[in-house]
């Protein structure tokens, strides 16, 4: 399972310097990962720590249609995209999601980020069929934020734990090995105990080979209000980029397609400057300045959105 590592970067942050006057520009090295905001900002729950404030009523971004996704998939061939990711909101709220995944798996590997609550028996059966007929992996990343009902539901809402665990159990019964994705909301000193807690709970629910990915929390959106947001000095400066392998940054290897065009990364779709064009090619041609504080988290931890470290450091 994947833990959060102490960042392997040297950064002499001058806490007194506060916000940099100029932000580093990051160009797309290769479009390895194409994300889809497939259910827009619509979600069946409203987690306390959501970094884009998704909810049942947030219509800033709408569902994507199969046709829209198909257009981007076609365009992605020429650009040599390696993997596809689907997020939201809650992707399984989109009624076309199964057709979208089936189509995508003809192009390449797909990963879906879900809260697991809408994984009804027929949905999971179909997912298993779709996965079996492709040479590519279909990864299901299921979000959970506590290993007890009390811990999880305090963040994700009442009744979520039971439904998510039922969804996970169904996935496991159909041969999936979901990646349980946990946003870190505890202190470092508790790492070991929390991990043990998750392993025990998952095994007790029938998941004998649990895969766990722990994400750093992104202190924007609703999470800024839940925790403390970022400190004034937590920005990426040009100086910090010296000797840093920029290919670790999502904006150097990914873009996200939405109902409103292509944005720089899955984290920043609500930022005004994050829209980079209507097509992948347009969005690939322009670089992005790391002017947001969430960029600081990405800088410190690297490739936080991908499943695992599929592309290692440059050597």
């Amino acid at each position: 399972m994947s833990g959060i590592q102490a960042p392997n970067v040297s950064c002499n942050l001058d806490k007194a310097s506060r916000k940099p006057t100029r932000f580093p520009l990051v160009r797309l090295e290769a479009l390895d990962n194409l994300w889809f905001q497939v259910s827009g900002t619509l979600c069946n729950i409203a987690c306390e720590h959501c970094f884009i404030s998704c909810s049942p009523t947030n219509h800033s971004f709408e569902f994507m249609t199969l046709e829209q996704v198909k257009g981007y998939l076609e365009e992605s061939v020429r650009l040599g995209v390696k993997e596809y990711y689907f997020t939201g909101g809650e992707p399984f709220m989109n009624r076309q999601i199964l057709d979208i995944l089936e189509l995508t798996l003809q192009y390449g590997p797909a990963t879906v980020l879900t809260n697991g609550m809408l994984l009804r028996p027929r949905v999971v059966e179909r997912l298993a069929e779709i996965e079996a007929q492709s040479i590519y992996s279909l990864e299901i990343r299921l979000s959970l934020d506590g290993y007890t009902e009390e811990m999880n539901d305090a963040i994700r809402g009442k009744g979520v734990f039971q439904k998510a665990m039922a969804g996970m159990k169904r996935l496991v019964e159909h041969g999936f090995l979901p990646i349980i994705t946990v946003a870190k909301t505890w202190e470092d000193s508790e790492d070991e105990a929390v991990l043990e807690g998750f392993l025990n709970t998952l095994r007790a629910h029938g998941y004998q080979r649990p895969r766990i990915k722990i994400l750093p929390s992104l202190r924007i959106g609703r999470e800024a209000a839940r925790s403390h947001g970022y400190e004034d000095y937590e920005y990426v400066s040009e100086e910090m980029m010296q000797g840093y392998d920029a290919s670790n940054l999502i904006c150097a290897n990914s873009r996200i397609a939405t109902s409103k065009g292509v944005y720089v990364c899955p984290i920043l779709i609500e930022a005004r400057d994050a829209w980079l064009g209507n097509t992948l090619s347009e969005s690939a041609a322009v670089g992005y300045r790391l002017r947001h504080q969430a960029c600081f988290t990405c800088y410190m931890f690297g490739s936080i959105c991908s499943n695992f470290v599929s592309v290692g450091r440059n050597v």
């Binding site: 995209v81 390449g108 992996s137 599929s310 050597v315």
Partner: peptide, 13 residues
């Protein structure tokens, strides 16, 4: 040190 696995490497890549 890039991993090229069969199930996560698209043909067009």
């Amino acid at each position: 040190n890039e991993f090229l696995w069969e199930s996560t490497t698209s043909t067009h890549f």
